[in-house]
Structures are given as C-alpha cells and as structure tokens.
Design a protein around this nucleic acid. Structure first.
Lengths: 125, 125
DNA sequence: TGACTATATTCCCAAATAGGAATATAGATG
DNA sequence: CATCTATATTCCTATTTGGGAATATAGTCA
C-alpha cells in the first residue's frame, strides 16, 4: 500500500470520521448514516472510495453490508490510524461520533448483533 | 489547524517528500530541485500550497527563499510528521532523498550556510 | 411471485488539483 | 543603470474530486 494513498483516504472529513469509527467496531452503512447524519449516497460513495483503495473490507450480512478495517492492515495504515485516534481526542465532532456509536451499540443494534453472532459461527465452523 | 488540512498537504508524493526533508533541515527551493529532481515550477507551486495552509514558513536570504517547518507547529502536525518519519523508514525513495540531502549538506552548501549564520546573527541581536 | 429494505451505481455539475510553458518579480551584482 | 539569479505567478489543460437526484441491484419476507 502506497503511503500517499492512505493520506488520500484521510483527506476528506467524512472519510476521516468513517475510518475513526471503524477503529472502534465494524459497522454497516445505516450506522454511518445514523451517526454522521449524512445522506446515503455520500456515505456509500466514500465507502466505495475506501474499498477501492483497500482501506476497508466488506461482508454482506443479509441486507446489510458490514464494513470493517482490514483484518491485516499494512503497518503504515496501523500507525496512521493510531496517530489519527491520538490527534482526534480533543476534537468535539469526533468525540461526539464516538458517543453516538456507543449509544447505538447499547440500544441492541440489530445489524451489528447479527453480524457478530455470524462471526462467532464462522469461527466455530 | 484543521486535521484534514494536514492530510490534504500529505496526499501528494512531492509534498510528502518536501515535508519529510524539512523534518531534517530548513531548505531553499534549489535544494529541493536538486534532491527531488523535479522542475522549479512544480516545487515552487507545492511550496506555495504548503505555505497557504501554514504548513511551512519562509524567510528570504538574498536571492534564496529558505523554507522550514513552523517554529511552533500545531500538536497534530508534530504528531503526523513524526508518524510520517516513522512510516518512511523502509521506503527507498524517501531514504534516497535523505541521503541526497546529507550529501548536499556535506558539500558546503551555500544558501544553507549563509542562512544559518544569519540565524545566529539574529539570535545575537 | 411481488413488495420491501439496504445499499450501490449512474449521470450530472461545480470545484479543486496537478502539471507545464511562458512570463513576472525581487534582490544581487557589475 | 542593465543584467543575472532564484523564485513566484499566470494561463492553459486534463484529471480528479465531492455531492445530489434518480435509478439499479441483491437479498428478504409475505
């Protein structure tokens, strides 16, 4: 993975928020819509952009597409994501996103719950 | 400074090489030309881009314009530059740039020498 | 099967970007 | 002053980007 490509992915605020959320948990498109309050096209397109550059991975779970960070992220990606998490600590918008995520997860969030139990099943099989 | 702006500056290979070199030493445009083997317009424009976003500072020294990182860089910039230095260790092109820089500095490099003695003078006055 | 849901894609437009050729500018030097 | 040197800017073009409206698609469920 080219280092510049990482920064190309980081240089849009929406993508940055998406990646930041993904450092916490895999999420589906509707989660991003809820948390970021952005229209579906926008989210979907940015996810496609990230996907095309190998910055995220997808798995279908029924109607939901569950996005997550690569299982084996390149070293540079790991380092930059952790730098991002570090830099973002003091930023209100990003913190608000995290808070919204927590709230979402607490409220027995369907897609994610299904996905996680599916993951467990996969591990067993 | 907006975090996204940092990544906007990082998302071009030439700018990335420029910033990487500046983590080592202030440099003038002709240095960048020598080290990066890129035409003057290109270097000059990318430096203007970085300047416009407060990512670098300039000081004239006779005919030379000496570029350097901000004296007081924002925390996020510091963190990301050090992450960059970390990520770039294994990259041949970037290492080559560093080697070229060292060679240039060793060969009694005029603009930089003048600049540094001027800096000393400023400190005294 | 048909309706529904979540998501992706297409088509459009406006703006930003990167690069090169040519030209302008500021300071140095004779 | 004229000339030279280092650098910046302007003008041009091709490409990429970001975003929205509308539409397409894949899987689900009755």
């Amino acid at each position: 993975m080219e280092l510049v490509q990482i920064y190309e992915c980081f240089c849009d605020r929406t993508r940055l928020r998406i990646l930041h959320l993904l450092t916490q948990s895999p999420l589906c498109v509707c989660h991003f819509q809820d948390i970021l309050h952005e229209p579906q096209v926008k989210i979907s397109k940015h996810l496609a952009y990230l996907r095309a550059r190998g910055m995220v991975e997808v798995e279908r779970e029924g109607n939901w597409m569950i996005y997550s960070l690569p299982k084996k992220p390149a070293t540079e990606l790991r380092k930059n994501l952790s730098c991002l998490q570090d830099c973002v600590q003091s930023d209100k918008a990003f913190s608000r996103d995290l808070k919204n995520l927590t709230r979402l997860q607490a409220s027995c969030c369907e897609p994610l719950a299904v996905f996680q139990s599916a993951q467990k099943t996969n591990r067993r099989s």
